[in-house]
Amino acid sequence: MQRILKTLLSRPEITAIIMLGLVIIGFTLYAPQFATYANSRVMLFALPELGIIVLGVGILMIAGEFDLSVGSVFALVPMVIVVAVGRWGFDPYSAMALGFLAALAVGYVNGWITLTFNIPSFVTTLGMLFMARSLATVLSGGFPPPFPSELPIAVFVADLGLFRSSMLWFVGFALILGITLHYSNLGNWIFATGGQQQAAADMGIDTRRVKMACFMLCSFLAGFAGMITTFRLRSALPSLGEGLELQAIAAAVIGGTALTGGIGSLIGFIVGTGLIRVIDNGLVMARVDANWFRFAIGALTIVAVILNIWVRNRARRMH
């Protein structure tokens, strides 16, 4: 019994799961409209777009690095796609390939600069936050370009009842990345690289390549999520996703991912994302002024980290 409890409490996502349960119960009691089919739809429609970003941000954090540029990449990639089809005459799939290439390039540059000059990724990606946003704005030509009708919107955002097809992409990414992170040797290298880089390197892991891969994955997923949002809105806005990087990091942290690297879980990413979406929606349903949303997310982030550390230490002392 003691052992099961210890194993349970050692899981990084445990506090987030409990908090999510409490928040759902709370909103269900206080906001009668919260736990309805219609409202679940609203929540599930928006979940994948943040969730896909959090997968990349969280895995990169486990590898011991940080990406503040995801919000800007979220705008840049769909801008590339829309402009490529609308102004440069690309067919839709080549345009999407070009967009993802741009995302991978941003990730590569983030990683290359960080690792080559040995500077904090916080700084590199802060710079990239501005640069990628600027590129998106320049590409747009100052106003949102017309949305080309030939883009394959249905594959990504078709309404399937309780959720959109974006949910299937999110689940697909989550499954593949979850298995990779927790059950493959590559996942072991990611945890080792973020947990104790010197040890990983001394045991023969190419930590530079591991981090590069995580940077590129993170940018790719941010761009993919931005594409989904743009397809849903049918409009490529240069200002899309401003501040999203902080929400994504908050979701990962709330889900038990350590800022110092080496600790985190895929379930944590999902539950952290869920908490943010539920609170965002629940506050509206409970008729609280929507401007309290950021306050709630901020407070939750701090409380989650304190609880995570406390629970972790408690679990460690148990036998």
Binding site: F191, A192, Q196, Q198, A199, G262
Partner: peptide, 9 residues
Amino acid sequence: QYTAMVPAM
């Protein structure tokens, strides 16, 4: 000397 172990693993 530092054992080349990852503490959280």
